[in-house]
Design a protein around this nucleic acid. Structure first.
Lengths: 191, 191
DNA sequence: CGAAAATTTGACATGACTCAACTGGAGTGG
DNA sequence: CCACTCCAGTTGAGTCATGTCAAATTTTCG
């Protein structure tokens, strides 16, 4: 079955006709492990819906350290939102961590969908609201808990993502060094 | 002039008729310094547009420590989004830091506005996208920079907010203790 | 003026980073 | 199939960032 169609129908009531029209705006892209969907500095011309595989969206700072904004798997969206909206150079790199499949839509077609299919505008609003809530919660966790707690929360909340990641990648999401994460893991095992 | 009307017109093209219809859904509320628009645990029944004054949206954790999600002043929106959307008990308290004026809309009327005025749905989408980008940037800052840098960035980016706040409030936003913020400030002065 | 809150300060404890070394497993070319 | 390399993970020592607690000082505000 069509994963994207299912996703849309879960959020809004939409006719099959409009749904098909929307889905036809996407193109399926295959991408190999370690290849990038977007590289920091380029303009992000797409919004992507992940069908299979796993992606990491990260930025590299002046010191050369990587910081992960989020990981994406099946049924998640992925884009550098600021770059996509404003055509500013992307602050993030989007890399495939496995051989992956993703449905891409460009900005022109997304605007077209918004204009022609009101349910789609509504769907994106609902979607954005949900991820907004998730971002707010992450900020509160980041400013209020220790790395131990954030690590346990991450592997508990997203076990199906965590199991595919290296500890280096998880550390870059939690905002700690991978050496320190290693020590946290040892401490957890030893109790 | 009507601040909210101006705000809407800056984001979307909308007829005066629809604009007035939208604005008539709000009710002006005056709230005194230190009073709360919302208390943690209650259901957030409103979304608010600030006309005057200053608000702080914060949560209290198990240890009794306060953590600030954001501050709001004139021209900003304020709500516990998750509670407003899902009717779950609010995780945040919204307190006025000064005598303030805020325009409130309830959920039923907001839904009505979305159904009857497509430009309003569009406006909220644009608004949510912008704050989404801001939240993403804040997460990256939180996981990648030290408290010194975050403090300097905050007072540089939002001087008109920072000047109204106590250091305790700023510290609760940055995710550090107010004693440590005091030491940061001394260090900055002494160079 | 007087009380409450904010701010500062210092001593000490803990969280977290850096660097360097080591181990072990996964891929790769011969 | 082996030897090699590379990368992830672990570990320890030393250091820096930040928290905690308690006390003193200053500011705010009724």
């Amino acid at each position: 079955m069509n994963l994207l169609a299912q996703y849309v129908k879960n959020l809004v009531n939409i006719s099959d006709e409009n749904l098909n029209k929307f889905i036809s705006l996407f193109s399926l892209t295959l991408i190999k492990k370690k290849d990038c969907l977007l590289e920091q500095g380029n303009v992000c011309e797409f919004e992507g819906f992940i069908i299979n595989g796993c992606f990491r969206l990260y930025t590299i700072d002046e010191k050369g350290n990587e910081h992960t904004l989020y990981f994406g798997i099946r049924n998640w969206w992925v884009t550098d939102l600021n770059s996509f909206l404003t055509k500013a150079p992307a602050k993030f790199t989007i890399q495939a961590l496995e051989d992956s499949e993703v449905l891409l839509i460009n900005k022109k077609d997304k605007i077209k969908a918004f204009q022609e299919i009101p349910e789609i505008e509504k769907m994106f609003r609902i979607m954005t609201q949900k991820s907004h809530v998730a971002l707010e919660q992450r900020i509160i966790r980041n400013i209020s808990t220790t790395a131990d707690q954030r690590y346990l929360e991450f592997i508990t909340k997203y076990p199906q993502i965590a199991e595919r990641l290296t500890n280096i990648q998880i550390a870059s999401y939690l905002g700690i060094s991978h050496e320190f994460l290693s020590k946290i893991r040892r401490k957890i095992v030893n109790n």
